[in-house]
Amino acid sequence: MTQNSTHKIVEIAYLFADIQNHVCALSASDSQIVYLFFVDRLTATDISYICELGSAKVYHIISKFLAKLLSESVRFRASVSLPGRPTGKLCVFREKTYTTDLEDQVSALMTNGQIEDHLMARVIDLVGTAIDIGTPAAPAQLHARIIAEIFGGEPHRRGYVLHNVLSRKP
């Protein structure tokens, strides 16, 4: 591994830690909305149904989180823009406005679907991966336990085999 690639890995680790810190600072209800949006990639309509909140409130929570992340994390800002030149509207707004304005702008952009697809996809990818990595792993026997609880008795061997085959990474 070259020194350059080691440096990149360390940078990504710091970026993920930055994002995880911001998620940890959220309240329990806000963090579940952020999880559903970034990790499970559900739409605001689905999230509003699940969490019994209005879509506007869901957009507000997500944009508040993004605005805070953009304002406070230099690494995150750098990762969603080209070196020296911000590519997306999110970063342009960060350069021009204060945090409160930024929050409104991000919210408006998200609601109207005006954020460029490639930028939003990159943001969702980064934040989703960081949160996913920070989430505790489920114990391996939980799947078997759930099946045993539902159908009673020991889970069928084929269930185990199927699970092992499918969970094996290529």
Binding site: Q32, Y35, D40, A138
Partner: peptide
């Protein structure tokens, strides 16, 4: 099998 990990992650938050 499809959803247990996702629901677990959601509940952990």
């Amino acid at each position: 099998r499809r959803y247990w990990q996702k629901i677990f992650g959601f509940l952990c938050h």
